[in-house]
Design a protein around this nucleic acid. Structure first.
Lengths: 122, 122
DNA sequence: AATATTGTACTATCTAAATAATACAATAAT
DNA sequence: ATTATTGTATTATTTAGATAGTACAATATT
């Protein structure tokens, strides 16, 4: 799948977000081994250093851990993953609502717009 | 009001977004005169060059125009503004729904989460 | 007529991010 | 034992964005 990187934001942050999402969504399961830094970098069409930075940040956050020469693995702390998922959702929701309000939309309008958009995905 | 700038994205883009939002939301009305580049820069705590860049980009998009030494004004093309507002809304909605799906949420979950969040703002 | 304010232009400098190119230590695989 | 793969570290270079400082032409304002 394409990584869809945006030139206007630090790439390592976008890599972090993408991998974090895959972890939270269960694309990578707890305990799973990640592809190597070099593989991931190749797949994302990114310099290995950049991928390394993203991964080490995720490690700092406790989402992954590395066994010296064996590879990198997803955390098995499922409680943490669930909390993270809920937290990220809340964050995106608040952000979205605030943006829509600042655009001048009222609650009811936002609600019906969402409703419409959800219908159209059938 | 604070400009709330994020270090991880080009500032001039954030300035553009903010001003565009104020225009679309009607904080600035069609035909209104904008504060001068220098004033805006001071208010946003940003270098005048950066603000100038943001404004000239907005001008390229047709959202504002400048009278040589009198100042800068909001476009009076209200049709354009309405289209822009609808377009931005659609964009944010799609983006939001996609992100939530990638986090692993289903339509119904998203819907009820939004419902909850909207209730909590009373 | 003189002054102040406007948008605009230009050059130089600084910084963070990304890339490029290697290198090394540890260990799994052979 | 040897080899390949792993994460990791290091140094140099390039680029985009932001800042700093200054200047100019046009025209409201006084």
């Amino acid at each position: 799948m394409p990584w869809d990187l945006d030139n206007n934001r630090p790439i390592y942050l976008q890599l972090m977000e993408r991998i974090r999402q895959d972890i939270v969504a269960g694309t990578y399961k707890p305990g799973d081994k990640l592809p190597s830094v070099r593989e991931l970098a190749l797949d994302a069409a990114v310099n290995p250093n950049t991928m390394q930075k993203a991964l080490s940040e995720l490690e700092r956050d406790g989402l992954v851990y590395s066994k010296r020469t064996s590879g990198r693995y997803i955390t098995e702390d499922e409680t943490m993953l669930n909390q993270l998922k809920a937290g990220l959702a809340m964050q995106h929701i608040r952000q979205f609502l605030e943006t829509m309000k600042q655009l001048g939309f009222k609650k009811e309008e936002i609600f019906s717009l969402i409703q419409e958009a959800l219908k159209e995905e059938a």
